[in-house]
Design a protein around this nucleic acid. Sequence first.
DNA 1: TATTGACTTAAAGCTTACTTTAACTTATAT
DNA 2: ATATAAGTTAAAGTAAGCTTTAAGTCAATA
Lengths: 143, 143
Amino acid sequence: MTYSITEVAKMMKVKPSTLRYYDSIGLLPNIKKISGRRVFEDKDFKWLRVLNCMKNINMPLSKIKEYVALAQKGDSTLKERYDMILKQKLEIEKEIKALEKCYKEFEYKEWYYETAIKAGTEKVVKNFSSASPTLDIDKIPKI
Amino acid sequence: MTYSITEVAKMMKVKPSTLRYYDSIGLLPNIKKISGRRVFEDKDFKWLRVLNCMKNINMPLSKIKEYVALAQKGDSTLKERYDMILKQKLEIEKEIKALEKCYKEFEYKEWYYETAIKAGTEKVVKNFSSASPTLDIDKIPKI
DNA sequence: TATTGACTTAAAGCTTACTTTAACTTATAT
DNA sequence: ATATAAGTTAAAGTAAGCTTTAAGTCAATA
């Protein structure tokens, strides 16, 4: 099975121009071309899924490009790529923890507004707590 | 207790110029000024923590500004702000789920490289699986 | 055979989120 | 009194990540 750039763009929820841009900076290696047009094959989706992941964790395109370049070099770069993956795994863990704290902050805000709306005014809750009950109350905004 | 812009910048892990920029676009309402200089007080940290959260979940500064503007308008905007918070809460949930899937993809990659490094070559694992064993194997890169 | 629609490239343009620069003010230490 | 350090504004500059534009190619349909 093969796919056009528009089809793949739809799958990835990006614009075709974005995929062309990615290709232009070396993020889509070894894409077949038939009479000038990009043709995506099943094997390409393996990398596209990983690319999607890397984008999702806000890895800069330059880092992704670096990874692609290493992969292109073959077995001699296995260790380097492994290290990159490990580092990114830690980043994801950190990010999930940060998001979980934010979630709690927003849960508090939800309660805050529910209470305020019931009372018709923010005054009743405004000075109730200096922060979400689940967060430490200290000067440094914790993340 | 009061704090200078540099002190607060350190706490938030941003540059003083970033805080000035935030102030300039209306993200730091009601900051006291003494002889032209910004003076941060304890009450300001309540909002700074929320701001930090909003930044952490990649809420665009324009949306944050919108929220601040609503808050400035007082009780008449309680419902609107409540809705914003609920929407953002859902966004965080989605983002955490996405990150967890990425984490699994990276766990697979970790195994992939460990196996390849042991063997000295990628060939042994390259066509083992078309994706992380924990992810659906379909065309659409899932997030 | 001519038109349509989907693709192509190269280059310029845009948006977001800062960051830097330049010229100036103010409080504190010498 | 003066120098220094830390702040100020307005405006220009920067970087990342696309997006748009213009001019052209190609294959399929009317």
